[in-house]
């Protein structure tokens, strides 16, 4: 018999299936982060508390080099703010999905917003159960990220330095694959993203690298405004 519970169960199962690959990445990068934080001198408790409260791998990696005595609060805040600025854009696009949730779930949904769960929610935004899918994916990512960080702080020497360095570089592959998955799913027009990428490379090379994000997003937005809009999967006319 089909009822609300089995329907939610199916959505949760779908979410778990969809997020599996990303969860694998979250576990891997969590392990790398835990090991790196241990080497940097963060206590295990600090690493675990920061990882669960911020739940922001990129921002956490970005501020790790600043974790020295005395802690430069301003540099930490600025660095985290810069890396987290794309959360604003993801929150902007995900607001319709988040608004469908009851207040407590919405708050959890906002707290757990990361690139991978954003990409999956955008890909599935035409589904009625997208809120359940999103929360399932986000929670799974949090659990696997924390499991990875726990392994990293518990066994900091388990991975040799070469492997750690290679996995650290894997963050780029992770983000690249998220973007590619979004492109493959026709969630949005790919041309503005390519223009953003080209503009960011040019800014990184010819201007101050700190401007690459701003220039890239600006160029992509301009392209999105100028180029004729064409319907994409999940978009209403």
């Amino acid at each position: 018999m089909d009822n609300g519970h089995s329907s939610v169960g199916r959505s949760v199962a779908d979410g778990l299936r969809m997020i599996f690959g990303f969860a694998l990445g979250a576990f891997t990068f969590g392990t790398v982060y835990g090991s790196a934080a241990h080497v940097q001198g963060m206590t295990d408790t600090e690493t675990l508390v920061l990882s669960i409260t911020a739940f922001a791998g990129a921002a956490q990696f970005a501020v790790l080099p600043f974790w020295n005595d005395p802690l430069p609060y301003l540099a930490i805040a600025l660095s985290a703010g810069l890396v987290s600025s794309r959360n604003i854009l993801m929150g902007l696009t995900l607001a319709p999905v988040l608004r469908r949730m009851p207040p407590l779930q919405r708050l959890i949904g906002i707290w757990l917003l990361v690139d991978a769960s954003w990409a999956l929610a955008m890909r599935e935004r035409g589904r009625r159960d997208v809120a359940v899918l999103y929360l399932t994916c986000s929670t799974t990512l949090l659990v696997t990220w924390m499991a990875g960080v726990s392994v990293g702080v518990s066994l900091p020497g388990a991975l040799d330095p070469l492997t750690l360095k290679a996995l650290g570089q894997g963050g780029v592959i992770f983000l690249f694959l998220i973007l590619l998955m979004v492109t493959r799913s026709r969630i949005g027009p790919a041309l503005p993203w390519m223009i953003a990428a080209a503009a960011a490379i040019a800014a990184d090379r010819y201007l101050d690298p700190h401007y690459s994000l701003l220039v890239g997003v600006g160029a992509g937005a301009l392209a999105g405004l100028i180029l004729p809009a064409k319907p994409v999967a999940g978009d209403a006319p």
């Binding site: 794309r86 993801m90 696009t93 969630i187 503005p192 503009a199 992509g220």
Partner: peptide, 22 residues
């Protein structure tokens, strides 16, 4: 529609310079 394009632009702008430097 414009807003939906922006997060992808941000990810592309973060990833592209790092890819170019590898």
């Amino acid at each position: 529609r414009l807003l939906n394009v922006l997060p992808g632009c941000a990810i592309a702008a973060v990833v592209a310079p790092q890819i170019a430097a590898t």
